[in-house]
Nucleic acid binder design. Structure first.
Lengths: 335, 335
DNA sequence: CTGTTAGCGCTTTCAA
DNA sequence: TTGAAAGCGCTAACAG
């Protein structure tokens, strides 16, 4: 109905090949015919069928981005960065929310393969390697953004989670805190583990013995942070004077819990987050947190992906690790 | 490389037509051949090429969602709802961020048409009608979610913005406030205007004369809310004792500005937002706001879209308007 | 510079 | 129940 290349060819009195050429832009076509074809295209309101084109050329100029939870404000930040460079290069982005569910991941992956996407960006897939490989095939370029996944050939772009967590903890230490609790991410997630390690490392470096009881795991949501903070408070033993929280969303939840318990931040308790979502600057008090250069990471990941797509011969995984930086705001103070 | 239907046919010793039939599921195929084909499929790890299929059948089972800003937490909520029902029905979702830029909108729209999406969900397109129609063609089903667009044939799903704003203002009025300012959305946006109308309506109903100077427009971001609140404070004349803010993000920004100025919320000034993003429950104080049933709206919009796709004969626009409800939390109190 | 001719991988009559 | 064959809309040699 929207008119085919054949209609245009007829109208312009040329062959479809010629139309194809002028649509493609470059190729050798006489100005005269080029003009006639252009006119025909306009008159007919012709839009090339990208499907047919893709089928013919063997690629789609489409990439997909899998992410665990679009509701966590940190990810949209990443999405934005990806969109940006995808757009620049004329790629279409397909977004899929996996909810961290391996089955969903598998379903999306096979769907995307069927959809003939040219490449894949993934934020934290939990699918085991064997399954991933089987479902993905050996050739599709994939790069992991922010969180890793279980696949050797995947490129990786992320911050140094450990170093970031260490930074946060050192900040608290420098402030004079000695009882620093940690609200961690799900232990099953590599990020969760890495940030926890950084925290423990800093403690050890300060000559403190990490207290297992002082770390409790949350699910990276506000609700999870709220609940975790409450549990932390109920805990017997010396009360912490500071909490390092594995992400900003949970930190926000934790601060709400403290407020509900009448505990002042940073007066009674300091809290430090991780991610530096835009909102972190607007909490009360503004949240001290570890900054991830989200846009740049996303940009870099996408560039790596597109480069891989452009170089089908070279499937060596790349890796880019960004430094995290500390952003001191109002939620941390001396004990 | 991933193997074609032809490979499967060979391996199973049947024709491609037969393979197609067993892949399709239903059709009359003897159990024996069905088995052979199934085996071949498994052994070869065959995945049908969705592109080729779409080209043959004339539809893609793909819909697109255009949204202005993925970074505003309200939209991901909507996205989630859309994903949900799209998934259920086996549709793939393409997400496009338009940044409220008409040119970008036009580009995406023509791209999507080329991409042969079966339908369109749009959150607040700003493209003028003529252009939209031209670029969209007459047949593609489109439904507007949350914010409207300039296109007659589009279906509409949204809350009653006016009524919600009125509710918020009435709440403030009932609390005893008489000087209620408003931080509005961009006047060019219908939502902005509608919410502002609701605010003014409530004022008038209460026998108050809306003060033009008491409303100032923001851009719906935290930063915008922050700046707007500051401007409001600088304003000469009687200081407001309450602000109704056109969305939660700006409300959060406004609260931060007030805090920075040493103005207590709700002690010195009440703040009411709009949207009820998840974070609204976690601000300090928790934000009183107008709730939009995001998930249900998204679900409904998607259902309407898919129904339209399924009924190519019927292009009558549908419309669903949801009631907004007030969620009273801690940011509002008597003056 | 331009047209002819095969496909790309799949579906779908139409016959057998 | 199964196969042959045409065709979806476009591209890409290959000739001319």
């Amino acid at each position: 109905m929207p008119g085919t290349i054949y209609d245009v060819a007829q109208q312009a009195g040329v062959s479809t090949a010629t139309v194809s050429r002028v649509v493609a832009g470059g190729a050798r076509v006489s100005p005269a015919t080029r003009q006639r074809v252009a006119d025909a295209i306009r008159e007919l309101g012709y839009r090339p069928n990208a499907l047919a084109r893709s089928l013919a050329v063997g690629h789609t100029r489409t990439v997909a981005l899998l992410l665990p939870d679009i509701t966590n404000p940190f990810f949209p930040e990443l999405v934005k960065g990806v969109q940006l460079v995808a757009d620049e290069d004329g790629y279409t982005l397909i977004l899929c929310e996996t909810a961290g569910d391996p089955d969903k991941e598998a379903r999306y992956l096979t769907m995307l393969r069927g959809q003939q996407v040219d490449g894949l960006l993934a934020i934290g897939l939990t699918l085991p390697r064997a399954r991933t490989e089987q479902v993905l095939g050996p050739d599709l370029p994939v790069v992991c953004l922010d969180r890793s996944m279980d696949l050797r050939r995947a490129s990786q772009v992320h911050v140094n989670h450990r170093q970031g967590a260490r930074l946060a903890t050192q900040h608290l230490l420098a402030l004079g805190h000695r009882h620093i609790a940690h609200i961690a991410g799900p232990p099953a997630l590599r990020v969760g583990a890495a940030r926890r390690e950084g925290y423990q490392l800093a403690l050890r470096e300060a000559g403190l013995r990490p207290d297992r009881a002082a770390v409790i795991a949350g699910d990276l949501t506000e609700d999870g942070g709220y609940a975790a903070a409450l549990r932390l408070l109920e805990h017997p033993g010396p009360a912490p004077t500071a909490i390092f929280v594995a992400n900003d969303l949970m930190a926000i939840g934790a601060m709400a819990a403290l407020r509900a318990r009448g505990i002042g931040v940073p007066g009674d308790l300091s809290v430090v987050g991780f991610d530096d979502i835009h909102l972190a600057a607007y909490t009360s008090p503004p949240l001290t947190t570890v900054h991830q250069p989200a846009r740049e990471m996303a940009r870099r990941a996408t560039e790596i992906l597109l480069a891989a797509i452009a170089a089908p011969g070279d499937r060596r995984p790349r890796r880019a690790v960004f430094d995290a930086t500390l952003v001191v705001r109002g939620s941390s103070a001396p004990p």
